[in-house]
Amino acid sequence: QWKVGDKCSAIWSEDGCIYPATIASIDFKRETCVVVYTGYGNREEQNLSDLLSPICE
C-alpha cells in the first residue's frame, strides 16, 4: 500500500512518458493521490492504481 512520501513512478499526462515522482498526498476515498515529479516540481493527480514502482536511476 502506498503512503505519503513514497517514491514511485508515474505517467505524466502531457506526454505519456514515465517519470520518477514522490507521493505528496493521498485521498483513500477516491483512490487518488497527488504526485510531485522529481526534478521538475510539477504536481499532478493520479489514480493510486496507476502508480508504478520507482525507477532505478
Rank of each mutant, 00 (worst) to 15 (best):
S49Q: 10
V4Y: 09
C33D: 00
V36P: 01
E31N: 14
D27E: 03
D15P: 03
T22A: 03
V34D: 02
C8E: 00
W12M: 07
L48H: 03
E44A: 04
V34K: 01
V34W: 10
P54I: 08
E57P: 12
V34G: 01
I11V: 13
V4M: 00
E31S: 12
E44W: 06
A10C: 07
I18W: 08
C17F: 12
S53D: 14
A10Q: 05
D15F: 08
D50V: 07
K29C: 06
R43K: 11
S25Q: 06
D15S: 02
A21M: 03
S9R: 15
S9N: 11
D27G: 01
V4H: 10
A21Q: 01
Y40F: 14
C56E: 15
P54A: 08
L51H: 02
C33W: 11
V35P: 01
G5P: 10
A21I: 12
N42Y: 14
E14D: 05
S53V: 10
T38Y: 10
T38F: 10
G5N: 07
S25K: 01
V34H: 00
S49L: 05
G16V: 07
E31W: 06
F28I: 11
E14C: 10
T32A: 01
I55P: 10
T32E: 05
L52A: 01
R43T: 12
S9C: 15
W2D: 15
T32S: 02
A21W: 07
W2A: 06
R43V: 09
E14L: 14
L52T: 02
G41R: 04
S9A: 13
N42P: 05
C33S: 00
E57C: 13
V36D: 01
A24R: 00
A24C: 09
G39L: 12
L52Q: 04
S53L: 15
V34F: 06
Q46D: 03
C56G: 14
N42S: 12
D6C: 12
Y40K: 13
I26T: 02
T38L: 12
P20E: 13
D27T: 02
E14P: 03
G41F: 03
E45G: 02
G5W: 09
I55N: 09
K3W: 14
A24Q: 11
D15V: 03
L48P: 01
V36A: 05
V36T: 03
D27H: 01
E45Q: 12
I18T: 04
R43H: 10
A10R: 00
E31I: 04
P54V: 07
L51D: 02
C33G: 00
E31K: 14
R43Y: 13
K29V: 14
G41P: 05
N47W: 13
G41A: 07
V35T: 01
T32W: 09
G41N: 10
T38V: 11
I55A: 11
I18S: 05
W2S: 11
I23M: 02
Y19A: 01
I23G: 03
N47I: 07
Y37K: 01
D27M: 03
Y37E: 01
G39E: 08
S53M: 14
Y37M: 01
V35F: 02
W2M: 09
D50G: 04
N42F: 15
V4F: 05
I26H: 05
I11K: 09
Y19L: 06
V4D: 14
S9E: 11
I26S: 00
Q1L: 07
W12G: 00
A21H: 08
S49F: 07
K7M: 11
E57F: 11
E57W: 13
L52I: 07
C8F: 00
I18F: 11
I23W: 01
C17S: 06
N42W: 15
E45I: 11
S53Q: 14
L48C: 15
T22C: 08
A10Y: 06
T32R: 03
S13M: 07
K3L: 13
Y19I: 04
S13K: 11
Q46V: 11
I11C: 03
A10G: 01
V35S: 02
S53K: 12
C8I: 10
Q46E: 06
T32H: 03
L52P: 03
Q1E: 13
A21V: 11
P54G: 08
G16Y: 09
L51N: 02
I11S: 01
R30N: 12
A10F: 07
I11H: 05
S25L: 10
D15M: 09
W2K: 09
G41S: 06
E31V: 04
A21K: 01
C8G: 00
R30H: 11
L52E: 03
I26R: 00
L51W: 04
K29T: 13
R30F: 10
I26F: 01
G41Q: 06
V35C: 07
V34E: 08
T38I: 12
V36W: 05
S25N: 02
E14I: 15
S9W: 15
E45Y: 03
D15K: 09
T38A: 11
S9G: 09
E14Y: 15
